[in-house]
Write a protein that binds this DNA or RNA. Structure first.
Lengths: 98, 98
DNA sequence: TATTTAACTTTGAAAAACAAAGCACTTTCA
DNA sequence: TGAAAGTGCTTTGTTTTTCAAAGTTAAATA
């Protein structure tokens, strides 16, 4: 038999990064503050997890404006979509013995 | 909208504990060494994760013998089954927007 | 008797998570 | 106009978690 956890992506071990990705899969763009409120995080904590996802090139940042107010939004990349899907597949394979 | 990660169980954030549980859901009993080999872990690492699961009363230990050789096996408890299912449900709810 | 195996525990180091504070900039409010 | 508040971070430092390695006890085997 094969190691059932070997195909899980380390980056998605974190519930927060998992949450961010799951939100970005269904929303084209989400703002920093929306993420912060949805996931109930402090600025610093969210920012560092977003940074991890960005380093991995799983998400992309868009710095723009709403009117004249700065607004930072995030979206998922093709690579991110793929990696997330692979992770979910691995998860499913692991537990679909149920 | 509701925080999508709030219902995930902290104990199952760990891929190792997730792996142990997923194996114990389908196998009535698994030995220490089998788990160790399947998940490719060192003794100490596995033992400490098993300990966490035991503290939570999600698994039960059985110390027995095979012939005269000691043999420790683990099985899932009713509480563990329930908690694991709840976690999977939360995961599914989170990602089944896909 | 010496070595090996099983199943740990202990120790200590490295990594990760996190909150809080600070910061630069802008906008809104009194 | 000046003060307060919001946005999106970065920095700092603490706490938590993870993990490997080594030590341990007891039994089995060579």
């Amino acid at each position: 038999m094969k190691n059932p956890i070997a195909d899980l992506n380390k980056i998605f071990d974190s519930r927060i990064r998992l949450g961010v990705m799951s939100m970005l899969v269904v929303n084209d763009e989400i703002g920093f503050n929306d993420l912060k409120q949805m996931l109930e995080l402090t600025d610093g904590n969210l920012a560092s997890h977003l940074n991890t996802l960005e380093q991995a090139e799983f998400i992309k940042v868009h710095k723009g404006f709403i009117g004249r107010k700065t607004s930072t939004t995030y979206s998922i990349t093709a690579l991110g979509k793929q990696a997330f899907k692979a992770h979910l597949d691995a998860l499913e394979k692991m537990i679909r013995k149920l």
